[in-house]
Simulated scan of single mutants.
Amino acid sequence: MTTTQSVPVFKLYGEHQDWPTPDLLHCEAIADRSRPLDWVIRPHRHAGLFQLLYLRQGRALVQHESEQHELGPGGLVVVPEMSVHGFEFDAHAQGLVLTLANPLVQRLGERVSAALLTQLLSEFRLCALNTSRQHSAIDNALQQIHAEYVGREPGRTALMEAQLAALLVRLIRHCLPGGGTLTETAGGAVDHFGEFSRLIERHYADGWTLALYAHELGITTAHLNGICRRTVGQSALQLVHQRILLEAKRLLVYTAQTVAQVGDRLGFSDPGYFTRFFKRQTGQSPRDFRRYAGTSRW
């Protein structure tokens, strides 16, 4: 087992410093970063950044947390903030990687739909573009963003953001269940959901009750649950449990901490309660999960 320190947090892969432009996005060809590294991007994470990887040609093996997936031509990957991910590409893979800073995502939410954009980017997704029309639309949208990104024409930032908003609308249609047709919430509810997501990120290991989350937001627990169900189709407690479970999986896979230590770090004073929680969520005990996941990583 490795330690969490062995899963580096990068701005761009291999770089701890911000990229050398004032933009809140970065767009580059897969080959630009992968070819010098023998087409292998080792597992890493990004703080405050979301990534979209589009594979136009070739194949790739995608690692997300403890799982591996195959990606073929026309495949697109959505990588949420701080999720462990890595890639192994064919030697002639072609495509683009788009990296978005969180402030830009928040701004785009005002144009697109904060609720739907949060739903799109908050989970790791493999999206297959099944028709030539879908493939062409996404390919063209990314090509336009890349061309504008590497150029220095007047109005570059405004045009890139408009192109990016159009791309995200297409991805919401293609990648979300029902094509992104779930009911969009009113502005206040969207704000509450976004703040709830940020509170979860700060306090998921602190043992906060739903009542405490709701109090911090200035609403009732019933109102909070209603917002979550309308926005992403899940209860507030499910969202909190998902974040706890994700961190539990990371600690089990990437550290040598005992099951009891992992549980304690996540706010479970009773190791048995942590084991029951984990098994109820995954169907496996923490030890069985660690044993399987530890043999499946590359």
Rank of each mutant, 00 (worst) to 15 (best):
C175T: 11
W39I: 04
P286G: 14
H64R: 06
A260S: 14
D32K: 12
L168T: 03
V253M: 02
T131N: 03
Q57S: 03
H26K: 03
L25A: 05
L252P: 07
E15I: 01
P80V: 11
I227F: 10
G178T: 05
E110M: 12
Q284D: 14
L71H: 00
H203I: 02
E15L: 09
T99R: 03
Y292I: 13
A186S: 06
L37G: 02
W208A: 07
R45E: 03
V190H: 14
S269G: 10
G178L: 06
T282Q: 09
T21H: 02
L142R: 02
G179I: 09
G58P: 02
V79K: 07
A91Q: 11
G95A: 09
P286T: 15
L168R: 02
L246I: 08
I244L: 12
A101G: 06
F50L: 03
W298E: 05
H16G: 05
Q238C: 06
N130C: 05
D270M: 06
A260D: 14
L212A: 14
I244K: 13
R280A: 14
D32F: 08
G151V: 00
F89C: 04
Q68D: 05
Y204P: 07
Q144E: 04
E148P: 00
H44D: 09
R42Q: 09
A189H: 15
